[in-house]
């Protein structure tokens, strides 16, 4: 991999403190982490452990209180909202627990959405969207609206949507939270495929160990700090 020299994500002493009146809530208390291109890691932890805050900062939806964050080698700790929006538009892919698809809008139009803001011409948007839908195996549902699809199918639409800008990093926030076990396994298998076959860098945030175990690296958060960061033993031999 040519980009292997530059980590996708490098954070040092990352802190996030919320002030609510008199109270100061330390959501992240000084986190160091590096994600190399092609990695598939899961971020685990109970609610309140800081994993969601971490994902929001990594996803450039939020800013750290202090510490440094380099995204693809560039300092991303102090960007304007518009600069962050532009990076999200071109280099990041998001998958959410609740899919977040636009209702009364066909699957293919949902997949096209990020390209609208990246300024990609219409014909190309349609071509790329269909190509990504093919990859996640739902090309036949292109004209369907979200309410005509199962949860698993909707999440695949969302995954296809996260792929359209060839992101440097896919962030999945509890992607299986709304799915049953079998569908949940299917979705995680899809992430593994994207990682193996396309070399996508993926970070899955979850509180379920079964889900986390699909990744090759498991990072555990507790009280705003990383308490463990190790390769997935189950997969070490296989990989």
């Amino acid at each position: 991999m040519s980009e292997s020299a530059v980590p996708v994500v490098r954070v040092e002493r990352l802190r996030k403190i919320y002030t609510m009146g008199e109270d100061r809530v330390i959501a992240l208390g000084g986190v160091d982490l590096t994600i190399e291109p092609g990695e598939f890691l899961s971020v685990m932890g109970p609610s309140g452990s800081g994993k969601s805050t971490f994902m929001q900062i990594i996803g450039l939806l939020d800013q750290p209180t202090d510490g440094t964050y380099y995204f693809e080698g560039k300092d991303a700790s102090n960007l304007t909202p518009d600069e962050r929006a532009d990076i999200r538009s071109r280099r990041l892919g998001f998958v959410f627990q609740s899919y977040n698809l636009l209702s009364r809008t066909s699957a293919v139009e949902n997949v096209e959405l990020p390209m609208l803001y990246a300024g990609i011409p219409e014909e190309e948007r349609r071509r790329i969207a269909l190509e990504k839908m093919e990859i996640v195996g739902i090309a036949q549902l292109a004209k369907h609206a979200p309410n005509q699809m199962s949860g698993g199918q909707q999440q695949r639409v969302a995954i296809a949507r996260s792929l359209v800008n060839n992101p440097g990093l896919i962030l999945a926030d509890e992607p299986t939270g709304a799915l049953d076990t079998k569908t949940s396994n299917d979705v995680m298998r899809l992430f593994k495929q994207l990682n193996n076959d396309l070399g996508m860098t993926i970070m899955v945030v979850t509180h379920e160990l079964d889900v986390a175990k699909n990744a090759r690296r498991i990072v555990s958060f507790r009280d705003g700090l990383i308490v463990s960061d190790k390769p997935n033993e189950q997969l070490v031999g296989v990989a």
Partner: peptide, 16 residues
């Protein structure tokens, strides 16, 4: 609101 949040997450500037 959620739609707006999503549009922002996938790269819409607030001006957009």
């Amino acid at each position: 609101t959620r739609e707006i949040g999503l549009r922002m997450a996938v790269g819409a500037r607030s001006g957009t």
